[in-house]
């Protein structure tokens, strides 16, 4: 009779690997092969996790077709099984896995579409902060304090860029999209801001200077540093206008100086 710890270790191995005779010996057949009974559990573990990934990455699934997606998901689950029971957190490594997964290496944009879907998923589950920053709170600051400002972003905000038009690819592969419009992969890359607006999660394109400005701030750097990085990206960058927009569109929820 195996100790419980031993039995559970063997059961775990069997969920992702072949049947082990020692484990099968502990299972009563009751008219079926013990292996057939074990297979019921293995099937559920693998298919339920595949369903979780398919619900999180529906556009990737449509891009590669469902059969291939489930094949890739199965390989992913074996390589990166969940480490905790909250399955809305499961799938973080899937974009990186796709980059390295040989059968889809030729689909160079696929991993970036997966990153976009993961960002949308994370934004929808991000902690809800109800009170955006009131710009009046910054009214009394001296110029040198303004330069040293850092901002706390709403937890749902994610900044993501790609050399591919992943927003277009995402749009034309929505389930309710009736007309399939081909996407020109050569049209160039995008810089996106993903976030929650009220009850909805969505994204918008930022130009490269604005993307640099916001992603530098989101990384915790000062306003002075973000402004000079944005100016390096584009001489046209208007720091005053960018700051005003940042403070009024609900993206930031706090500041320090």
């Amino acid at each position: 009779m195996p100790a419980l710890h031993e039995l559970q270790s063997a059961f775990l191995r069997a969920m992702f690997g072949p049947d082990e005779p020692e484990l099968l010996e502990t299972i009563v057949g009751d008219g079926l092969l013990p292996a057939a009974r074990l297979q019921i559990y293995r099937h559920h573990v693998l298919t339920s996790l595949t369903d979780v990934l398919q619900a999180t990455f529906p556009v990737v699934c449509r891009l590669v077709d469902e059969r291939f997606f489930r094949y890739a998901a199965d390989a992913y689950i074996r390589q990166y099984p969940p480490e905790a029971p909250c399955l809305f957190e499961y799938g973080a490594h899937f974009p990186a896995f796709l980059v390295a997964f040989p059968p889809c290496r030729h689909l160079e944009y696929l991993a970036d579409v997966a990153r976009l879907e993961w960002a949308l998923h994370r934004a929808s589950h991000a902690e809800v902060r109800t009170r955006p920053l009131d710009p009046a709170e910054l009214g009394g600051l001296a110029p040198h304090q303004v330069a040293q400002l850092t901002f706390q972003f709403d937890p749902s905000v994610i900044l993501l860029d790609s050399p591919w038009p992943i927003d277009q690819i995402w749009r034309v592969h929505q389930a309710d999209e009736e007309v399939y419009a081909p996407v020109d992969l050569n049209e160039g890359g995008v810089s996106l801001e993903i976030r929650r607006w009220d009850d909805d999660v969505g994204f918008r394109r930022l130009d490269s200077a604005m993307y640099t400005f916001r992603s530098t701030l989101a990384a915790g750097h000062t306003l002075a540093r973000a402004a000079s990085a944005a100016l390096a990206a584009s001489q046209e960058f208007d720091c005053g206008a960018a700051l005003h927009e940042l403070l009024t569109d609900g993206v930031v929820i706090g500041f320090t100086f």
Partner: peptide, 10 residues
């Protein structure tokens, strides 16, 4: 088991 969550009531 072993830091892995098997999504089932085993």
């Amino acid at each position: 088991a072993g830091g892995v969550y098997l999504n089932h009531l085993l």
